[in-house]
Design a protein around this nucleic acid. Structure first.
Lengths: 141, 141, 141, 141
DNA sequence: GTGGTCTAGACCACA
DNA sequence: GTGGTCTAGACCACG
């Protein structure tokens, strides 16, 4: 339950957003599975040497994004069900990221092969594990 | 002299930092060379629909970093001796974006084919015109 | 821009939720229209003698609910477009409220006619004004 | 002795207060009379899937308000001389719920017919059996 | 023990 | 001026 989040206060990215990104990554990559409990607010705050309210913000935002489920008095848990998005929303969000990647890669003079390889590497690292992980049909609540 | 900067106010990244990063990229990638003049503050601000003071801040910060030279009444210019990014820095920056794309796509339940197609579309749109997209050879990483 | 929110710290309802409820009411009843600017965080906090971060929380939650649009450095505005909900979500949310009303009314020994009249009164007060308000097609951004 | 309390943990209202309110309603409406015994703490807690300490808190608070009498080792009982709610109090409480329903329905773009139907469905389900729904007379408030 | 709310006040980003 | 983030610490609700 240590989660090993790495926070860089000088990155310009808000701390709570860095936390969100990394928690999402752990979930997507299978390190955290549906139903898994996250560290308590106080525990994580102390481990990262940040204020508890910052952790609360990260958790709350992830709750809004249907990534976490917060149970009062119990703790924060990875949501059971994959959140549903409309196809248009999905494409819109992902296209924004794809464009950002393409633009920066092009500006840096990267080749298409390089970019393609990079994306494939990250995809397999993140989603590959899921395909081999056990089916999630056993969980019902 | 439009520079094609891509700003996302909701990314959590400060706008002036997004600008700095991308200007650095332009310089590192050779799109901007030593001595080249950057757009005027007003011009850039209008093009990006942002406040001129934000542009000023980005330019000033880059001046402090010895990346730009501000000549009062003349404009902003790329400094001499601008270090190019190392290959590892390039990869690190792009990998961060690729990972973010992969994580969100995986959490949304997108297929690999969908992600791959999206990236390819954006790449051809962004880099295609400039680079005469090279022949589609097979690659593995 | 006074908005005249009434907060009762002893009601047991969180302050930010009381604010949300009343802002929603003002919007639904037409007192606040699409595009209207809300009081600034500091202004409202001072007027209600509460902490600014509490106002921020109310505004942020309403932003998540697609009721408000927050423009950094500009202020908070009533969203232009009515948020879209699936029919099933709509019914689920409203049925919860309808049931609560029915249960409590029944426990208090209210008659069906009384309940029906109450709902109709509130509906016309809230939605009636909208039907007579000018069409909103002129706004484009 | 199930009491049919309706608890919504996400309403923002403290659970113990929701319980207090509804127990007061039961008493005011005559469903619970002076001297009647309430469910045991454990029984209620299990039925509502909440923590026994929460039930204890609700009972204790009602004891302080002289609404209940706690007899050690015996249970909780409705006090003598429990004032019934005035008509205006009834209306105030119900109107609050009716308004909330109207506001949310209006913001979701629901039709009056939809809302009306929903309320009638819930009413008949909740009160129909108990009250042998009286003949449908015309009423105006 | 858990999370939820609120305060008081600081500093940053943006217009 | 606007909103956004973070800290330090308090008290409440819940298990």
């Amino acid at each position: 339950m240590l989660l090993h989040l790495q926070i860089d206060p000088r990155s310009g990215l808000p701390v709570y957003r860095q936390m969100m990104d990394q928690i999402r990554y752990y979930i997507a990559s299978g390190t955290l599975g549906p139903g898994d409990q996250l560290p308590s607010v106080r525990e994580l705050a102390q481990a990262l040497s940040i204020n508890p309210t910052t952790v609360v913000k990260a958790y709350t935002e992830l709750q809004h994004a249907q990534v976490l489920e917060i149970r009062h008095g119990k703790g924060a848990f990875v949501n059971q069900s994959t959140p549903r998005f409309s196809e248009s929303d999905k494409e819109k969000a992902l296209r924004r990221l794809a464009r950002q990647l393409a633009v920066e890669a092009a500006q840096m003079g990267a080749s298409w092969e390089f970019v393609q390889g990079l994306v494939e590497e990250e995809w397999t690292e993140v989603a590959g594990a899921d395909f081999q992980s056990p089916p999630q049909e056993l969980r019902k609540s």
